[in-house]
Amino acid sequence: MAVKTYIAAITEALDLALEKDENVLIFGEDVGKNGGVFRATEGLNQKYGDERVFDTPLAESAIGGLAIGLTTQNFRPIMEIQFFGFIFEVMDSLSGQMARNRFRFHGTREFPIVVRAPYGGGTHTPEMHADNLEGLMAQTPGLRVVMPSNPADAKGLLLSAIESNDPVVYLENLKLYRSIKGEVPEGYYTTPLDKAAVAKTGEDISIITYGGLVPVCLKAAEMLEKEGINAEVIDLRTVSPLDIETIGQSVEKTGRVVVAQEAQRQAGIGSAVMAEISERFIMSLEAPIGRVSAPDSVYPFGAAENDWLPQVDDVINSVKNVLSFE
């Protein structure tokens, strides 16, 4: 297996999908000749041509409409929203249209659309470039929300998303693009959607997290290990719908839980996870569930973002707090 960056794994998946199925199209702002502002589509326009990998006007809502319309002609569109913060411009296409269409047609038509967008903080981007808005997507029935945390998953989950006959919002963590590397299996493979992964096994406490916070929580678990605390880290991978089975198995084993997300605390994925645990596994819990999140303010881009974003110490403190409950 070759060691690759997270973004290289994404590019490889896109390349394989274009190669496998001529109905797959990639389009968005600057994804053509330029290969995307992060180079996620590097070389694909040159390899597959303007008919299949192409730039669009700077109009997110039109990009969403284009994707929906193209499905009527049996294409499988992969649309890129250049930064996840720009998603507000295309909310009707996502939540008002593509997510509802299978239901509207009573299951008689399919909308195999992948919406790719980079998200996540810590890279000093301008405003509206780093926000964690997955909670907004998760609220919409009919949208699947996938947030890989490592290169192997990034490739396998993207290929699954492209194979899915439902719309998938596939969110790529900006900070992870080039900061992490990992072994990536060769060739075409899929990693199942709707399935969480045990990123690290442990007995004392379950840290349930996803996306950009997975490496942060793994780092915290590593440091806790030195203090004799054996934490399990669950990587949700698909944040909507949730994999209750994997969450349940971990909670029943450890009896103590910390839920960690980079997004603000109010509503969102962490709240949904906590609610499901409270409803289903309360008898297994030995302590109230701990929570790590950003505070409920607007994302403070730039200078102060690392004061605001959850850090390794926040996870460690929350774990210790939950473990100290008698």
Binding site: G65, I68, Q73
Partner: peptide, 20 residues
């Protein structure tokens, strides 16, 4: 019902027809 959505979607259908 969402006025305008049919215009962006028609663009997608029309592009698909052109490609086909």
């Amino acid at each position: 019902i969402i006025i305008g959505a049919q215009f962006v979607e028609a663009a997608g259908i029309g592009l698909g027809m052109k490609k086909r």
